[in-house]
Nucleic acid binder design. Sequence first.
DNA 1: AACGTGATCTTA
DNA 2: AAGATCACGTTA
Length: 203
Amino acid sequence: MSSADLEIDPLSAARLLLGAELTGRGVTATVVEVEAYGGPADGPWPDAAAHSYRGPGLRNSVMFGPPGRLYTYRSHGIHVCANVVCASDGVAAAVLLRAAVVDTGLDVAWSRRGAAVRESGLARGPGNLCSALGITMDDNGTDLFDPRSPVRLRLGELRVGDAGPRVGVSKAADRPWRMWLPGHPEVSAYRRSPRAPAPGESD
DNA sequence: AACGTGATCTTA
DNA sequence: AAGATCACGTTA
């Protein structure tokens, strides 16, 4: 398994990432919740909710690059969130990592997240996931399959999880591009964006 | 339902 | 230059 296995569409990549093992600075975790994101209107997967929708810019350029890289962005001024870039070089698509089960390095994860959080909450939510694994904006663009990289990914079997709408997006709010492995308390509850149009009125 | 928080983007 | 937006998380 290598970055070539991610040269696929974002929905397939999302399924491939369910159950994958993510390692970040002393913590390894199993990915249990992801969201697929596409690209501009004239690309293969038009997606108004994607950062890449309006073409490459300073923030999102990694999304347009080769697969197997990490795309990080800062959200709401506070949190760092992480995506795995998929599709061919030059085509924008990525999968947001929303939740994971911490397998090893629990003490490290707890020291980063604070002793008060429950074990199932260590990497619950995209911001918390990055916090638990020590992922920062400096990791933007890093090669997840380079053994020297501080953040690495090991792909497993293709898993088909449950699917539903993405959390918190105001565009394409009904599109069922969030996927998760059922039965894990790490998976976030669904929250529709208050700015999204009523269900059924969005593409 | 509200809000803290700041980078990024759109609009002018 | 100004204003809106936001792939969040916590508290209520």
